[in-house]
Amino acid sequence: MSTLNDILKNNLHGMYYGNRVLLPVRIDILKAVIENDIITDFSSTKSGASYKIHDDFTEIYFYDYKVLSEVVKGFEKIKLVVVEKGKDIFDFTNHRKIALQVKEKHKITISEINEDTLLFIE
């Protein structure tokens, strides 16, 4: 199972189908920003977003969007504050900010947000 560092270092990509995102890493999500939506409540299975950590990947659903490629376009990104599974969630130094960019053929690129280049407030 890849770690977040492996993924970022090796430019491994995720996938999306419609409004479902699959990331090849086990992460807890604390905050998500998609378009103008700021999501911090992941408890619903009808609105906002929810995620599930599987053995080899993390699955996220964005319920309010049917097809992500129709809303996350151009230079826009989905932004997440995440903590790798197994790390202390209460230690803020373990909080990582990542950006997901929707590409062609169901690909999603994953990059770490550099505060110098992309604005994202935790």
């Binding site: 378009e35 990104k77 280049t117």
Partner: peptide, 12 residues
């Protein structure tokens, strides 16, 4: 393009 990306520029 790097500036557009940093500004997360889009027409929305």
């Amino acid at each position: 393009k790097k500036i557009l990306e940093a500004n997360e520029f889009n027409f929305e």
